[in-house]
Design a protein around this nucleic acid. Structure first.
Lengths: 234, 234
DNA sequence: CGACTGATTGACTGCCCTCAAATAGGGTGG
DNA sequence: CCACCCTATTTGAGGGCAGTCAATCAGTCG
């Protein structure tokens, strides 16, 4: 599993994680990292386990969720290349992971173990700032999600999640923004039943603002869905 | 408004905020603080405003919420004596408040302005750790809340919120744990309509596990409500 | 051409919200 | 002490959003 340390970051990868680091600092951080390959369904970290490593998704896709006591999964967010996880490792020394993260595609990560983290934080103070910033963003995002689930209808949550997913996962295609999502995945992320997801997608396809293929959604324009998700109509 | 600096902390106030500080450090932190009185409906910080001060609730009660674009308030949590807010001030230097906090009772706070914060963080590294810890707790709490609103019924959310509120606001009374909460406040915090809150409270009173007075709820035993809120019944 | 996974559609159900209206507690001023 | 007011609380009736269940259809891959 664990392979050689990474000398250089894949080109084109942008991460808030490295912002504020000088070139030599960045080099030191990369030198301390171990690269690993990941496969679908692989659990990259499990909530409750001791937080002993911080890692960065380099390629692929991951899902962050929390297990509820009924056995259900509370979806929290997608992880895409450049996203950092296991931040508890740095944020408070002896900690446990707050959420579970599972790979949903083939890909790779860069990981730092606990001693490396501590050494790097001492060497690069800006690293600590970056981590705090990421945590604050997560908090902000979760609060937004709470608002969505509290005040928005199923249709609005679907539209909202399409917008968010498009920004994270979307590829620019011939006809619009292409998303590799099954109806079920969208349903889970928007916290809507599979059937209402299907029905709304059908509606939108009939309206011509969307095209569906198996496991794929093409949004002709984001603005439609932004409008739907924000409309307060009273 | 702003009054003399606080030489000593009110006795009996326990805050995670001061854990890990040595006695002289704690003295320095207190010396840099300004004490202020707060009154109901006073906005202590407003989401979106620049985060220019960190503060600690000393006495009284506050409500943290976020304003939704429909004009509604998304309740997030109660603030009770010992709770720290405005953490964005420390966590990432030029930041804005994530949430709005409003006083709901008479009380007082200790506040540190931005320069003081920066000086204190340099002087007391453990302060930074404490702040991170508090932020992580908030994140954990919000995720829990998201789970509750996603998977629990109105009844379960009410029971859960009674338990949480009891731990934060509850006083030990003759007949049980006393809570100063109106039906409407409970309804808002559990994200349930005022009417279903009233109905469930009536049910529970009929069952004899609860007593109601105007603006006050007395729980005879927490375990009943813990069971209700956790029951997954399938 | 099966077999499997993903998508679709219709019928039904139920939780909980909305709205309307009445009741009760608690303080105030006369 | 009583009249009054304002807020908190209670109760009932009705309805809608969206979830559940069952069955069928479609796309992909061996």
């Amino acid at each position: 599993m664990t392979t050689a340390s990474a000398a250089a970051l894949p080109p084109g990868l942008r991460s808030t994680f490295f912002e504020g680091l000088t070139a030599p600092e960045k080099k030191a951080v990369l030198a301390a990292a171990r690269q690993e390959r990941i496969s679908p369904h692989q659990i990259l970290q499990q909530e409750g386990d001791p937080a002993i490593r911080l890692w960065l998704l380099v390629t692929g896709r991951a899902a962050a969720y929390r297990l509820e006591n009924g056995g259900g999964k509370l979806f929290l967010r997608w992880g895409v290349p450049g996203d950092a996880f296991g931040l508890a490792t740095i944020v408070r020394a002896p900690a446990r992971y707050l959420v579970t993260i599972e790979a949903v595609q083939e890909g790779s990560i860069l990981a730092w173990d606990l001693p490396s983290c501590q050494a790097l934080v001492l060497r690069c103070p800006s690293l600590s700032k970056a981590v705090n910033s990421v945590v604050a963003n997560y908090l902000d995002g979760v609060i937004d999600e709470l608002g969505a689930r509290s005040f928005q209808t199923a249709e609005q949550r679907l539209a909202r999640m399409l917008v968010l997913s498009a920004r994270q996962l979307g590829r620019a295609g011939r006809e619009g923004i292409e998303l590799d999502l099954t109806n079920e995945q969208l349903a889970v992320t928007a916290h809507v039943s599979l059937f209402t997801a299907t029905r709304k997608l059908s509606n939108w396809q009939d309206l011509g603002i969307l095209k569906k293929h198996r496991g794929k959604i093409v949004l002709l324009s984001l603005s439609f869905f932004e409008r739907i998700s924000k409309d307060t109509w009273r």
